[in-house]
Design a protein around this nucleic acid. Structure first.
Length: 124
RNA sequence: UUUGUUAUGUGAGCUAUCGCUUUCUAAGCUGAUUUCAAAGGCUUAAGACAGAGGAAAGUCCGGACUUCCAGAGCAAAGAUACUGGUUAAUGGCCAGGCAGGGCAACCUGACGGAAAGUGCAACAGAAAGUAAACCACCUAAGCACCUCUUUAUAAGAGGCGCCGGAAAGGCUGAAACGGUGAGGUAAGAGCUCACCAGCGGUAUGGUGACAUAUCGGCUCGGUAAACCCUAUUUGAAGCAAGACUAAGUGGGGGAGGAUUCCUUUCUAAGGAGUAACACCUGCUCGGUGUUCCCCAGGUGAGUCGCUUGAGGUUUUUGGUAACAAACGCCCUAGAUGAAUGAUAGCUUCGGUGUGACUUAUGUCACACUAGACAAAAUCCGGCUUAUAGCGUAGCAAACUUA
RNA sequence: CGCGGGGUGGAGAAGUUUGGUAUCUCGUCGGGCUCAUAACCCGAAGACCACAGGUUCAAAUCCUGUCCCCGCUA
C-alpha cells in the first residue's frame, strides 16, 4: 500500500504550493531544492517544479518521473515516526545528469535532516 | 565501382519486479429513508484491453466546429499573382509553359501591368529622361572678313566667324533613345540593304500559358520585394470557443422611471421621436449594451465539448499525375501541477578499444557503451524547421571488365 | 491559444522611416602632462550590422525563411 501513488499524495493547487513555498523549511542540494512543511493529513504529499531552464519538454518529463519514483519508493524508511509532510521539489540543472541512485541517496539524506529539524521545532 | 541525383521505409526488441491514465468486468460503499429498489457516483495490494511522433515542434497557411444579432451598402486594410487541373479549402499538391543553373539525371523561380499616373537613381559624366543645351564635327545653300594665284572690284583655291546642318562622336557610369557589317553624304543619320535582338499584325498547332512560320513600319530605357493599377479573395474571435450543473447568496447582474406626438380608447395599451457614451475593425442604415438607479465579489469547482473522422488500408476501375469512385477489412491516446514510467537482466543493429588471421580491405573473439531530433493538449489537410544509425528502388556521368 | 518588441566594435546606444559615408559615449592600446597616480590633451586599433537566401547597379536599411532574447492578453 505504501508504494501506491494516487492523487491524494500530490500537491495540485497553486494555493498549496504557495503555502509550502512561503512558510516551509528550505533544504538545498546540488540536484534539488526541497521545501517542506508538516501537515495534518494522514500521508505526505509532494509537488514538482521543473522550469524551462532545465531543458526541453522531454527532459523535464523525465526528471519529473524520476523524482516521483524517488518519492514513492523511499517512503518506507522511518515508517513509524514519519510525520506527514508537504514537500515541494524544485529541480536544478544537475538533476539532468545525475543518476537515479544519486537522487535517492540525496533525497534520503535531506529527509533525515528535515525530519530532525521539524521535530526540534515541535519540541520548542 | 566511384561520384551525384530523386523518391521512399524504419526511428531497437524481449523478460521480471514495482507504479500511472482511460474503458470494461467483478466485489464493496453510497444513492437509501419504515421496507424493497434503479440510474448515477466513489473505492479496490481483483482481472482484462489499450496508452506519444515523423516531425507530436514552429504556429506559417487552409478548413471543420463554436459563439457573437450577425445583416445590407460603400470605403479602407490584408493576402495572392505564368497556364490548366485537383481538393472541404489553401499561399498546398499535380501536370504543362517560359527563364536561370548543371556535362547529365535533375534542381531553382513573389513568373501580371512601366504607351493610367506619381516618385527615385549617391559618385562620376555634356546629359539620368520631355529630350534639349554644351564640347568637338561639317561649311553644301545665305552673309561678312582674311590670305594666296591673277593687271583688276571679277574668277579659282584655302581659312575664320555668323546663320545653318546634325538621329553619328564625347574617355563617365550599373544603366546613355537598338547591335554588327556594307552602301550613302558637305558632315551625318534605319536614310537604304543583310543578319541578329525587340515591338506589332496575320496564319497554323494547343483548352490555355505559349510555340512555329510569315509580313510590317523601323524602336517606344531601369525600378512596382517604391507608391500604385488590374484580377481574385478575406466578417470577427477562438475549445480558457461554447453548453450544463452545483455551491453561495442580494445576485451575477437586477429593478424601474421621466417627457413630447399619433392611434385605439378613456386612463391603460401600442407605435414613433428625444441626451451622452461604448461595442458590432472605419462610415451610413440597422442592432445591442451602459450612464441619468443600486451593490458586490469569488473561483480558477465539476460534467459535457473529447475523439468514428473530408479516418486508415488491400484489391479493382478512371486519370500522365495530384486525385476520384466501388467493394471488402480495421478501430488506433484522451491527460489537466498534466498519464504512457522507474529499476535490473538478456538479445540483435551500430560505435569505441584490445587480441588473432591477413600485404591491405576484411573476418572472428572479448570488453565497454544503449546513445538522433523531439513528447499529444479540440480535430483534420498542408508548409517550414530539427534528426544518430540502418536500409530500399529508379535515374545520370565517369572509369573498369566481358 | 493569440499578439508585440528587439539582436549594430568589449559595454550601452544612434543610423532602418526616405537603400549609396557605419556615428556617439564609456572602455582598451600608444604618446604627452606630473616626482607619481587620477583628471586632462593628442593619436590609434577594434564591426563582413544574429544567421541563410533573394530583389537591386548597390542592402545594417527592402522582401522571405530560420535561430535566440525580452514582454503582454485571457
Amino acid at each position: 500500500m505504501l508504494y501506491k501513488f494516487p492523487k491524494e499524495k500530490k500537491l495540485l493547487k497553486s494555493r498549496e504550493f504557495k503555502n509550502v513555498l512561503d512558510s516551509g523549511a528550505k533544504f538545498i542540494l546540488p540536484e534539488l531544492i526541497i521545501f517542506s512543511k508538516p501537515s495534518d493529513l494522514e500521508s505526505s504529499r509532494m509537488g514538482l517544479i521543473v522550469t524551462k531552464k532545465v531543458g526541453n519538454a522531454v527532459i523535464r518529463n523525465k526528471i519529473k518521473r524520476r523524482l516521483r519514483e524517488v518519492f514513492r519508493l523511499c517512503k518506507t524508511f522511518d515508517e513509524g515516526e514519519l510525520p506527514a509532510l508537504d514537500l515541494v521539489f524544485i529541480a536544478r540543472q544537475k538533476a539532468v545528469t545525475a543518476s537515479y541512485e544519486k537522487l535517492t541517496s540525496s533525497y534520503e539524506f535531506a529527509l533525515k535532516h528535515v525530519i530532525r529539524r521539524h521535530s526540534k521545532t515541535k519540541k520548542l
